[in-house]
Amino acid sequence: MSTLQPVAEPKVTQTGGQCRRHLLDLDDFSPQEIEAVMETADGMREVLGREIKKVPTLRGKVIVTLFYESSTRTRVSFEQAAKILSADVINVSADSSSVSKGESLLNTALTLQATGADFLVVRHPHSGAPYLMASHLERSGVINAGDGWHAHPSQALLDMYTIRRHLGRLAGVKVAIVGDVLHSRVARSNLWGLARVGAHITLCGPPTLLPLDLLRGAGAEGGAYLPDTVAVETDLDRALDGADVVMVLRLQKERQQAGLLPSLREYCRLWQVNPKRLERAKPGALVMHPGPMNEGIEISPAVAHGSQSLIEEQVTNGVAVRMALLYMLAVPGREEAQR
């Protein structure tokens, strides 16, 4: 029983992350801590530009990626980040491990902790799975690589890093997040992170793909739990009006089959980000997408591959930001970026 009791340790840290063991979401990040990630990521990008992309920083650390959902970029990005920092990386996927024999998430996590894993990077289809793990693990840290509809903090940080690189700031930046907000962990983590640093966020999508409490607005309970820099909009043109950044979310085609949308054709006509709609945003507005894209659905190929698109750069920045996160989690008390 004793190993099944939650570990009594607060996740919340106010000290710039120096005693943070888990990365679960950005809701408890201070602006200073976010800035520290950004600055550390700058240093990591420099490492990525070297001819020999390897530093010894995390030598001897064991990082396990545990993915219960398929993923290309997030898993590879974490693996790459860990390897460049000289950590040992072990990849566990649900279909080729004891998980397929019915082992519970918690027992798998305890097993991996017992093998000596310093960090478990976990992707899970159920919201809250990393909290379940973190509250029962005494030694290993948990890094949330996406849980259900809830959070994807490393994605949000890489999005913010990308914005900051191009606009030089995050405070006051106007960001439109467009698409299937209801089911999006990327939207939720960006919302917390961007709000922390003073950005303005407009969530936009079809009424059936917005949480009902947000759609219905400030009437009943709407929004009292959200930062006041968050707005909700169903009209794409209004949402894009004057935006510095347009983040496009993936639309799973199953949403239409489940009755949430009349047709993909209508979705494309009303909510697809294409060159004409993009004209509403500020000239040169940044276009981002967490991937994988459904080109021709939520985003037109011309925009996805156009001059304003940062979609590929997001992937590169993702490696730098995840290096920064691993470094900051694994090397407490760091002062500045590695060399």
Binding site: P10, D25, D27, Y131, A134
Partner: peptide, 25 residues
Amino acid sequence: GAPSPQPLVLSAYDTRTKVNPPLRS
């Protein structure tokens, strides 16, 4: 139970609160 923007704590997603019908407002 008033809405608040507090960060989640580790004990969030408390499965002991899962009941049908669910705990309401």
